[in-house]
């Protein structure tokens, strides 16, 4: 059953054109937690001299992952939309390495889901970026 839900969530994410275009994949989801990965891609570079990924690509990963976490919360009936998202960039992601994000929906009301996320590359001890966001809780009706 849970396996079925994960499969559906993966299909859902891969059907989003912007996520597909950026090559994002969902690796884990359930109970308000989601893990996603963005492969390093030369087309997404923000600084051609260093080869560091653009903040926009990291934002897209964080936003999708936070939204997925909000939707996977047991109290979330259906879809979601971002109300606001704040990203803190601690350091540049190392060129050539994939970026992984883990998002957690740490509180949810009938109308708002509160989510935080951390983005990492291969150096697991030093986060690349963190995010906090508020998401709508869309009713089924």
């Amino acid at each position: 059953m849970a396996h079925q839900k994960v499969k559906m969530a993966k299909q859902f994410i891969s059907a989003i054109p912007h996520c597909k275009a950026l090559g994002m994949t969902l690796t884990e989801i359930g109970d308000g937690v989601a893990v996603m990965e963005l492969p390093y891609d030369l087309r997404l570079v923000g600084d051609p001299e260093t080869g560091v990924l653009h903040g926009g690509a990291v934002s897209a990963l964080m936003d999708t992952c936070c939204g997925a976490a909000a939707m996977s919360h047991p109290s979330s009936p259906a879809g979601t939309a971002t109300i606001d998202l704040r990203i803190d960039y601690m350091r540049a992601a190392t060129p050539g390495q994939n970026v992984r994000t883990r998002a957690e929906c740490y509180h949810i009301t009938r109308s708002v889901a509160f989510v935080r996320a951390v983005a990492m590359d291969d150096d697991q001890d030093n986060p690349v970026a963190t995010a906090t966001g508020a998401f709508t809780v869309e009713g089924l009706s």
Binding site: A15, I16, P17, H18, C19, K20, A21, H54, G55, G56, A57, S59, A60, L61, M62, D63, T64, G67, G79, A81, T82, L85, I87
Partner: peptide, 24 residues
């Protein structure tokens, strides 16, 4: 562009694409 879509049902632009646009 089609690749900027985040919700194919509405359809609506992806929040991440919007964030990237604003940051740029």
């Amino acid at each position: 562009d089609e690749k900027l879509i985040g919700n194919p049902m509405l359809p609506a632009l992806h929040g991440g694409a919007i964030a990237g646009f604003l940051e740029t």
